[in-house]
C-alpha cells in the first residue's frame, strides 16, 4: 500500500516564500508563499493578467524575483535556494528533475527533428550513449502518451496539435522528473482532444507520483487534475485550499464570480 504519510512525502519539494515581482511600479506578483509536496498537484487559476504566468516563471527560475525566494529539495535531499544555484546546476535541474510543458508545443519541442530524438534529447543530455537504448526508451514513452510508434521518425511538424502536446509531455517525462510545470497545457486544443489529454495527464501524474504546478484559467482543468488551488487576482493570491473546497465553497467575491462564470456542461 502506497504510504503518503512517510517522511519523504512529508518534506516539501518546492517552497515559495514571499515571492514578488514588479516591473517598475507595476507589481505582477505580490508576496506569494506556499509549499508543494511530492506527488501534489497545485493549480494556479485566475484571469489573464492576474500574475499566474509570472508566478510560474518565478517558480521555475526563468525570471528573477524582485523579492522573496524559491527553494527546491534536490535529488540529494538538500533543500536549496534556486537563486543561489549556478547556471549549470539550474539548467541540469531543468532538464532532469523538472519538466516544463508549454501551452504552445512548438516552444517546447524541436519541430524539425524526429519525435524519437525529441524524446531522446534529455537522455543524451545526461550522457546516454547507446542508440538502441535511447530509441527503446523513446518508443516506450511514445506508447505511454498514446502516439503510434510507427511515427517515431516523423518530425512533430507533421503531427496534429494534440499529438504535439502529448509528445511534449513525453519529452519532459523521460528523465523521471519529480516536478513538472505546466502553462495552460490544454489551452490551444479542441474540446475532445483536451479531454483525452487531461485524462492522460491525470493518469501519468498519479502513476509517476509527480508534483505539478499547473497554470490554467479553466476551472474544469483545475478540478480534474489538481489537489489544491490558488486563486490569483492582481498579482496576489486571494484564496487557496483544496480544489473541491475552493470550487464548491468559494469564499472570496472574486472566486465566487469565477466559479459562477462557468458555463453549465
Amino acid at each position: 500500500m502506497a504510504d503518503f504519510d512517510t517522511l519523504e512525502a512529508d518534506r516539501p519539494l518546492l517552497i515559495a516564500d514571499g515571492l514578488s515581482k514588479s516591473y517598475g511600479r507595476i507589481a505582477a506578483c505580490r508576496d506569494v508563499s506556499f509549499s508543494l509536496y511530492p506527488g501534489e498537484v497545485l493549480a494556479i487559476v485566475g484571469e489573464s493578467g492576474s500574475g499566474k504566468s509570472t508566478l510560474l516563471q518565478l517558480l521555475s527560475g526563468q525570471l528573477a524575483a524582485s523579492g522573496g525566494q524559491v527553494s527546491y529539495r534536490m535529488r540529494d535531499g538538500v533543500t536549496r535556494d534556486l537563486a543561489a544555484l549556478g547556471e549549470a546546476e539550474r539548467r541540469l535541474l531543468f532538464r532532469t528533475d523538472w519538466g516544463f510543458v508549454h501551452q504552445d508545443p512548438a516552444q517546447g519541442l524541436r519541430m524539425a527533428v524526429s519525435a524519437g530524438a525529441n524524446v531522446g534529447e534529455r537522455l543524451m543530455a545526461v550522457g546516454w550513449n547507446h542508440y538502441g537504448r535511447i530509441r527503446e526508451s523513446a518508443s516506450d514513452w511514445l506508447t505511454r502518451v498514446e502516439i503510434d510508434v510507427a511515427r517515431i521518425d516523423d518530425a512533430p511538424r507533421t503531427y496534429s496539435g494534440g499529438m504535439r502536446q502529448r509528445l511534449q509531455i513525453a519529452r519532459n517525462l523521460v528523465t523521471g522528473p519529480r516536478l513538472v510545470f505546466m502553462d495552460e497545457p490544454t489551452g490551444g486544443l479542441d474540446v475532445s482532444v483536451q479531454a483525452r489529454l487531461l485524462d492522460l495527464l491525470r493518469n501519468l501524474v498519479a502513476e509517476l507520483h509527480l508534483a505539478v504546478v499547473i497554470v490554467t484559467h479553466d476551472l474544469a482543468v483545475a478540478r480534474l487534475l489538481s489537489h489544491r488551488v490558488m486563486v490569483m487576482k492582481g498579482g496576489r493570491v486571494i484564496e487557496t485550499g483544496l480544489t473541491d473546497q475552493v470550487l464548491d465553497d468559494p469564499r472570496e467575491p472574486y472566486t465566487q464570480l469565477l466559479v459562477s462564470s462557468i458555463l453549465p456542461p
Partner: peptide, 22 residues
C-alpha cells in the same frame, strides 16, 4: 555559447541520432 560554456553537448548526439534514425 552557453552550451559550450556549460559543456551541454546532448544536442550533438541528437544530430547523430537523426542520422541513424533516417
Amino acid at each position: 555559447r552557453r552550451m559550450h560554456a556549460l559543456a551541454e553537448y546532448g544536442l550533438m548526439h541528437v544530430k547523430l541520432y537523426e542520422d541513424i534514425a533516417r
